[in-house]
Design a protein around this nucleic acid. Structure first.
Length: 802
RNA sequence: GGGCGAUUAGCUCAGCUGGUUAGAGCGCAUGCUUGACAUGCAUGAGGUCACUGGUUCGAGUCCAGUAUCGCCCACCA
């Protein structure tokens, strides 16, 4: 609630609030579930706070501690004064800001008198003057001639009146500021390292809320920023402020509270990451775990090789409490038992005298155990044996380090096996303007709102459709609408198929496969395209290319199955010349292909495919639920049928183009005749009714021969169409003249295009380098293409000559 | 400072190991109450694949460099 914080509530009321929150969340989820239907076993869906995973956390920590991989020490940690807790390196966000760089004069100590020399000064540059109070040295670069003589001398720190040495350290950049750096080992990561190298004292001068403390100066009790102002003013007053200027810098802010993080010395628990990271690296390098996309493996390598020890202590209240108990002498005992150890492991003091660490674990510590703690680890449960290690971890690349890295490190250490063989990293969803979704910007999308309007399948399909591994995608309503339209298309296609059942197939009859003996070319084409789609989808799936999977299915279902398959089937089903057996075969082919598509699409659109699939005829051994139905196996394609229908598609498209070009009334049914080259003639002959229907033409009583094919169009004022191995003449409706000229112009343009391509093809083939160096298959393809173009050009010329 | 990604149609994006004329959706234009679907159908316009150079018979694709945008990592006070 607004205005309530961990600090204002106190521990008990805080925890009470949190429990209430979780209960409320649970109510919402249950309510959703009730609306959607289905059931949920709450016994198996537990928050990680419950006793099962709590035990996993304690045991994990105990094991790490026993191996010396968890240790407690005073070290510099990132401290958020707002949250009053330490945070991990990853939770500190570097934020560019304009600050001030002040130059401050420190007075050198006159070695003779032991007093500061009023005239001899060393000027240091700092963005944080308040930390002067914690300075224990001034550092210069060892090779800096300006300061060579000063190394080893002492300067006086103002206000605290402390004398500190001038030291030489290569960390100093002589070109920055004055080339002299004040060293505050307790409040800066660099300075801390320098301090350790030189054995400097590390006085802490800021308390938990970032107020100055323990300096013995009047600044004690002031907030850090107030102290900064006062110190700058006081330095100026006493003439020791040498200058100030604006300075672009990067400041660390707390991911949660946005407060400026202060490095502080704290006694905390750490996990030694070097050996864990080495094992995680070994897993990826050996290929036992693969990171996708592969380029992110580089990032992973870099991070894992530069990782620092992990501070796991948090001074928060909601979380797994660290299972360490301390005796009055400060000995730490780690125990996996909830009530703690019976006695101090070091000195044997009884449990009654021990006090548990008040801190809790970093949330990613327990999350890092998730792949096995959820399966009952450390108990050797059946679930663990069966489901660990897992297979694929899918998550956004933004938590590769936060979560995946921790799961890998802890998983390998505690179970001996990497928790998954593949890490698939998806991109992030951005808003339509490319902005990162964020609550503060208010550009977040509630999926439930989208689902309410356009459906869960549409949302899911849209997200998968746009996904390329590791690449962000902009997300807008339009994409979901397109996916919704696709769902609608699928729905209607299924409705059509079910409604087109031949009367000779009894309602409710079991599933049958189409009888090959009675299939027409269009039917064989439908089945062949389904076979091709199975292969393509399998291939894309194996590559984790889910975007490609959805694109393949969209294309196959909409542009092939619906646009041509169903249209061709309509003709055949309505054709009085076909036998019942043929109509049945056609229908069963439609059902079969639809069944395949629904199965393939199910992972991407689970709800609608399930619903539609259940309405299809089934065999006795179908499970009745698509979600557990078999994935389609590989099938043979029918090259001949694909060529035949391919030619049909080409011809029909050409006819439609010609009609559109000539602006023939769409409603006009033109007389049509088709001449097909003998090689394909027979099959297209069988598809004649389909061509007529799809081209909106009606049959001519007399079929044309090659001889009178030429001449008919101009004679009748009709249109000539030449497409691949087929030619067609469509006649003008009576009373409409003038198309002959348009027909001629169109054919001339087509001839020009064809000749341009033909010239290019011939030039390529005339190039010896091409024919000698290109692979034979490519050259063959070029030859075939050249022949085809030459033929086409020849026919167009012939046509125009008459 | 280091590393990585992106740059393809007006917009959002595909384009797998280089191979004939570079694709989709949306948008746009024209026309359609086609007995599954107007959440649809048909047809069309629209691209020097950021730039420069290189490798190759052949480059959106490979290499080098440049520019712009973005992300990650990093101890410049």
């Amino acid at each position: 609630k607004e205005g309530e914080s961990r600090a204002s509530l106190g521990r008990e009321r805080y925890l009470e609030r949190m429990r209430a929150f979780i209960e409320a969340t649970r109510t919402v989820i249950l309510d959703q579930q009730r609306r959607v239907g289905g059931s949920c076993d709450w016994g198996r869906l537990r928050f990680t706070m419950d006793e099962v995973s709590a035990r996993a956390v304690r045991v994990a920590f105990l094991r790490l501690h026993e191996k010396g991989l968890a240790y407690r020490t005073e070290a510099l940690v990132n401290w958020c004064p707002g949250c009053r807790t330490s945070v991990s390196d990853l939770e500190v966000l570097p934020t560019p800001e304009t600050g001030t760089l002040w130059s401050v004069r420190y007075h050198l100590i006159d070695e003779a008198t032991g007093r500061p020399d009023p005239d001899a000064t060393l000027t240091v540059a700092t963005t944080r003057p308040e930390t002067i109070l914690g300075d224990t040295a001034v550092a210069v670069h060892p090779d800096d001639p300006r300061y060579a003589a000063l190394v080893g001398r002492r300067v006086r720190i103002p206000f605290v009146e402390r004398d500190v040495p001038v030291i030489a350290d290569a960390v100093v950049d002589p070109a920055f500021g004055t080339g002299a750096v004040k060293i505050t080992p307790a409040h800066d990561h660099d300075d801390n390292e320098t301090g350790k190298r030189h054995g400097l004292a590390m006085p802490t001068i800021l308390d938990d809320e970032a107020r100055v403390t323990g300096t013995g100066t009047p600044y004690d009790g002031l907030d850090r920023y107030e102290a900064r102002q006062r110190i700058v003013a006081d330095l100026a007053a006493q003439g020791d402020l040498a200058g100030e200027r604006a300075h672009e810098m990067v400041i660390g802010r707390c991911q949660r509270s946005n407060d400026v993080v202060e490095p502080r010395l704290k006694t905390q628990w750490f996990v030694r990451t070097a050996p864990l990271a080495a094992a995680a690296l070994e897993a990826t390098r050996s290929g036992r775990t693969t990171i996708l996309p592969a380029r992110l493996e580089k990032t992973w390598e870099h991070w894992m090789t530069n990782i620092r020890d992990w501070n796991v202590s948090r001074q928060l209240w909601w979380g797994h409490r660290i299972p360490a108990w301390y005796c009055p002498d400060g000995h730490a005992t780690v125990s996996a038992e909830p009530e703690g150890p019976a006695a101090c492991a070091t000195c044997g003091r009884p449990a009654a005298e021990l006090v548990q660490d008040p801190d809790i674990f970093d949330t990613w510590f327990s999350s890092g155990l998730w792949p096995f703690s959820t399966l009952g680890w450390p108990e050797p449960t059946d679930d663990l044996a069966r489901y660990y290690p897992g297979s694929v971890m899918e998550t956004g690349y933004d938590i590769l380090f936060f979560w995946v890295a921790r799961m890998m490190m802890l998983g390998i250490e505690l179970t001996g096996e990497a928790p998954f063989h593949t890490v698939y990293l998806s991109g992030l969803i951005r808003d339509p303007y490319g902005q990162k979704l964020s609550k503060t910007k208010g550009n977040t999308v509630d999926p439930l709102d989208t689902i309410e309007v356009l459906g869960a399948d549409a949302l899911r399909f849209a997200l998968v459709y746009g996904a390329t591994p590791g690449n962000d995608q902009r997300f807008g309503q339009a994409k979901v609408e397109n996916a919704r339209n696709f769902a609608n298309k699928l729905w209607n296609a299924t409705r059509f198929v079910l409604g087109a059942r031949p009367s000779t197939v009894p309602d409710g009859s079991g599933r049958r496969l189409p009888d090959p003996a009675h299939l027409g070319p269009a039917d064989r084409w439908v089945l062949s395209r389904a076979a091709a789609t199975i292969a393509a989808v399998d291939h894309a799936m194996a590559d984790y290319n889910f975007g490609e999977v959805s694109r393949l299915l969209y294309e196959a279902i909409w542009s092939e199955y619906c646009d041509w398959g169903l249209e061709l089937a309509k003709v055949r089903l309505a054709d009085p010349d076909r036998t019942d057996a043929e109509r049945e075969a056609t229908w069963w082919a439609l059902v079969d292909a639809l069944d395949v598509y629904l199965r393939l699409l199910h992972p991407v659109m689970p709800f609608i495919t399930e619903r539609l699939w259940q309405g299809l005829p089934h065999t006795d051994d179908d499970p009745g639920l698509l979600i557990v139905a078999r994935w389609p196996g590989a099938r043979a394609r029918d090259e001949a049928a694909e060529a035949e229908v391919g030619a049909l598609v080409e011809l029909v498209r050409a006819i439609r183009n010609a009609r559109a070009d000539a602006k023939v009334e769409p409603a006009a049914w033109l007389p049509l005749d088709v001449y097909v080259e003998p090689s394909l003639g027979h099959a297209l002959e069988g598809l004649r009714p389909a061509i007529e229907r799809l081209a909106r033409a009606r049959p001519l009583r007399r079929h044309l021969t090659p001889e009178d094919l030429h001449g008919t169009a101009s004679a009748t004022g009709g249109l000539t169409v030449i497409a691949g191995p087929a030619e067609a003449i469509i006649g003008q409706p009576a009373g409409e003249a003038g198309a002959a000229g348009a027909d001629r112009a169109r054919l001339e343009k087509e001839l020009a295009d064809t000749e341009r391509l033909l010239a290019a093809a011939r030039a390529r083939l005339a190039n010896d380098a091409f024919t000698s160096k290109a692979p034979p298959a490519i050259v063959e393809g070029a030859r075939a293409s050249e022949a085809e173009l030459a033929d086409q050009a020849e026919r167009l010329r012939d046509r125009l000559a008459r």
